[in-house]
Computed example of a mutant assay.
Amino acid sequence: MPKSSRLGLLRNRDFRRLLAATALGQLGDRIIFLALPLVAIAALHTDEFQVGLLTAMTSAGSLLVGLPAGAWVDRMRKRSVMISTDLARALSLSTIPVAWWADLLTIWWLYSVALVHGVLTVFFDVAYVSYLPHLVGRGNLVEGNSKLSAIRSVTSISGPTAAGPLVGMVGAPATLLASSAGMTMSGLLAITIRKREEKPEPSERPQLAREIKDGLKFVVKYPTLRAIMLGDSIFNLFLVMYQTMLLVFLEREIGLQPFGIGLIFSGMGCGALLGALLATRVSKRVGQGPVIWLASLVTCPLTALMPLARAGWSVYVAAIGLAALSLGGVIRMVAQSSFQQALNRPGSNGDSIP
């Protein structure tokens, strides 16, 4: 096989820079995933309800701005939105260690940062998904998503593995500085991407309320999109519940130290990496549509192993279920993202959607 064929999109300079920016940003995000709840659990000694509320604040962004975010981002250059939200998230996270050192940190401070971070992440994710088709073209979406998912999976392994010892050495609040640094470098690297979209003309855009209404009508009109939206809502609701109590369970019930918790979450990253490597092949063999529902249906039941675990070796065996969850989730998201991005390409009117 020619070297150019093996490299694929890696020959594209701008895609390589997006890949590197993704690695840095996701590394910071994976550290947040472990360190932010541990600030509440270990540093502030909060109860389970407060930890759950902290996670809810992180997820509340999608409820608050999920509908208008797409319409707002559609009026802006996607690359600029990615850069500005990366830098703003980095700044908000850096306030936590500063407040901790000044003895001002409270759970309400964490709630505020989590909410701001969650809202900014919604805008970043919308811009990121919308920018990729512009950068690589519709025909390369599955390859592009697979390579980006592989990078995210590698950081899912390295992030918690690095975060565990860091939390143990310098504490959870100071560890968030590493997250802030990763997102800052991600934003700065994205500035070097040369390919930019034309700025949308405000005069040619419909009213914001009308865009939201049209978007909802478009989703509701087609059974496939309705099923994806409903499935995502149910899956994410219960995933957030599971992950929120998982940290409390590992720290207080199992008695794991930050390093051990990091190893458990690194196992999830291994599953995600395997999923990214298999995603293109599985989508081609099974079909992009069936993969979207089949991947999670096959892998999610194994997460029941974790609540059955006890202190000792059984918790690491139970981590296989978490790795399976990540494997299925990545395969599903690669297929689903490619499907949605193809529908949102310029000139697509949805006529071919089932």
Rank of each mutant, 00 (worst) to 15 (best):
M1P: 13
L9I: 01
F15R: 06
Q26W: 03
I32Q: 04
L38F: 11
A40S: 15
H45Q: 15
F49E: 10
F49P: 03
L53C: 09
G66T: 10
L67N: 00
M76R: 13
S84T: 15
T85P: 12
D86P: 13
S94W: 00
I107D: 11
L110K: 09
Y111S: 11
S112G: 15
H117P: 02
F124S: 07
Y128G: 02
L135F: 02
L148P: 04
S153R: 05
T155K: 08
P165T: 02
V167I: 15
G168E: 02
L176H: 00
G182R: 07
G182M: 05
S186K: 08
G187S: 13
L188F: 13
A190N: 10
E197F: 07
E198L: 07
E201D: 15
E204R: 04
Q207I: 10
L208C: 08
V219M: 05
P223S: 10
I228D: 12
F235E: 10
V240L: 05
Y242R: 09
T244L: 03
V248S: 07
R252A: 02
G255N: 11
P258E: 03
P258S: 13
G275F: 14
V286K: 09
V286E: 07
G287E: 14
Q288K: 04
P290W: 14
I292V: 12
V298G: 03
C300L: 10
A304T: 14
I320F: 12
A323P: 01
L327C: 06
G328S: 03
Q336C: 08
Q336F: 04
S337A: 04
L343Q: 14
